[in-house]
């Protein structure tokens, strides 16, 4: 495993920790999209179907368990925790997430590397992950007072896929026969969706002001 890949995984892990920290310490999920969190839980379930069938490494298995466990616990907190759920911006978080799920499933059935159940679910998870941030970005745009932890969470989540792209470029040049078009294009789309956010993130950082996306 190269350093770029490890940095990507760690950024992903830290993003989840930042979110859980916010939920756990200030007992608030204000500004966080439950739609996006539910999509991530679905992404991990469909992608990690191989968790018990293909052993890659202890690191790999542990990380999969962490991502599955944390994504479901975040959804649980937002839906059922008696204090946390009160801070959920239900009226603002109106993105219809099933409009993302169905097209991704159809696309995975049409464009995949191999027509098997596991492979299609894997491909579906890649397509869905690429667009799963959309409800969160819409909510961010609607929210007037976004707290810093929410902004850092979204930034880290975007940085993770950007680091993965660098990892793919590195692997392409260092490993023979390393070609994964579906993964690359979905990852690229996912990172491009963050383009606007990144732009305003750096602007707010440079000018030392609170990030707010223009309506």
């Amino acid at each position: 495993m190269n350093i770029l890949r490890l940095a990507g995984d760690m950024t992903h892990l830290i993003s989840v920790i930042v979110l859980l920290l916010k939920i756990h310490s200030i007992k608030s999920c204000a500004g966080i999209s439950l739609k996006t969190q539910e999509l991530y839980a679905l992404v991990f379930v469909s992608r990690y179907l191989n968790i018990f069938t293909d052993f890659i490494s202890l690191y790999n298995t542990i990380m999969k368990l962490i991502f599955l466990g944390t994504s479901f616990s975040i959804v649980w907190y937002m839906r059922y925790h008696k204090i946390v759920r009160r801070s959920y911006d239900k009226d603002q978080d109106t993105f219809r997430h099933y409009f993302l799920v169905l097209p991704c499933l159809i696309l995975a059935l049409l464009i995949n590397e191999r027509f098997t159940f596991k492979e299609i679910m894997w491909t579906f998870s890649l397509y869905l992950e690429a667009v799963a941030i959309l409800p969160q970005l819409v909510l961010l745009q609607r929210t007037k007072n976004t707290d810093n932890l929410t902004v850092q969470y979204i930034f880290l989540l975007g940085a993770y896929r950007a680091l993965y792209i660098l990892n793919w470029i590195y692997r392409y040049f260092t490993e023979p026969d390393y070609l994964h078009w579906i993964t690359w294009i979905s990852g690229l789309v996912q990172t491009i969706l963050y383009g606007d956010f990144f732009y305003y993130y750096f602007l707010s950082w440079k000018n030392n002001v609170k990030l707010q996306l223009p309506a």
């Binding site: 890949r5 890659i56 790999n60 990380m63 999969k64 991502f67 590397e113 191999r114 894997w122 026969d177």
Partner: peptide, 10 residues
């Protein structure tokens, strides 16, 4: 079968 080694990325 170059595509179908076990997926090693997360």
């Amino acid at each position: 079968e170059i595509f179908h080694e076990p997926k090693d990325e997360l």
